[in-house]
Design a protein around this nucleic acid. Structure first.
Lengths: 153, 153
DNA sequence: CAAAAAACGTTGGACACCCCAACGAAGATC
DNA sequence: GATCTTCGTTGGGGTGTCCAACGTTTTTTG
């Protein structure tokens, strides 16, 4: 016995946390390359999609919807505004707010981003069969949901 | 037709790349909290394990084994050395190299880290049944392997 | 054997994503 | 009218990943 518990690194490499980091990094790289054409990145895609979904909105609501920090939202919207994909105008009804609205270019860009994102995700899961992909995504979604502490009582 | 392609954000949130990012972030947080007791982080665990696996080794070989950048390896080893978990001595046979060796404290710490890591990973996959966990990890491992470009010829 | 090439550890810097604290301006509440 | 909250903004921190360059030492090569 006392079998050499040697492969400590292999054990780590088989850990879900390690694999998730690797896979996520791969996904980030693929998405990044795909979006590079538009000069945008993942957060831009999400925010642009959110603006498309919930019409003209204030930044704070946008942040609540997407989960981005207000600080980061500023930068993201600066980029989107500079690229003429959204407009940012003061809200006359509430002078604290900025009304973020999608432009025509923004809508078409969003379409391209969606397609690019889909392609990148197809490449990301290229190693799996369609059935496996479905299974994987379903399980992954449950892992990603962070419902802290379930039954405490 | 022209069915309201409204839920653009929901589509993004269902993307594997998005879910992977979320799940990986959750894993990083759990691992980070678990390892905080030892004052270490994920990379330290990996490098410590690699040193345990392939005996006294040079930093470069360690970097090749673990996939860490040489620049980052310096910092990681600085931390491990400061914590007396490894020793870093000049190699007499090759004065370019540093020989990294595990200390007794390093070995016991590695054992604790392994246990903490396992616990955190258990929490990470708490939402899945044992059978699902196995399936998930198997699929995830295939997604994480980044074998660029398969059959080109 | 001398010159060129490669590997070693180190430093400096960059990027992506995530999170927190504080501030002035403006609105809501009492 | 004073308090409290929300809004956008600025400043900062932290983790993980990656690249470029340098001086030193070893290896390869002409």
């Amino acid at each position: 016995m006392t079998e050499p518990h040697e492969p400590a690194l292999d054990r780590i490499r088989a850990l879900p946390s390690w694999l998730l980091n690797r896979a996520a990094g791969r996904g980030r790289r693929l998405l990044g390359e795909a979006f590079a054409h538009e000069g945008l990145r993942m957060p831009h895609h999400a925010v642009l999609a959110a603006v498309a979904d919930i019409g003209p909105v204030a930044q704070a609501a946008l942040g609540r919807e997407t989960g981005f920090d207000p600080k980061d939202m500023v930068g993201i919207l600066n980029d989107l505004q500079r690229a003429r994909l959204v407009t940012r105008t003061p809200d006359p009804d509430d002078r604290r707010k900025n009304v973020i609205a999608l432009t025509a270019e923004g809508r078409s860009c969003l379409g391209r981003l969606a397609q690019l994102g889909d392609e990148a995700n197809r490449a990301l899961l290229a190693a799996l069969t369609p059935a496996e992909r479905e299974q994987f995504v379903a399980l992954l979604a449950r892992v990603a949901e962070e419902r802290e502490e379930g039954p405490v009582a």
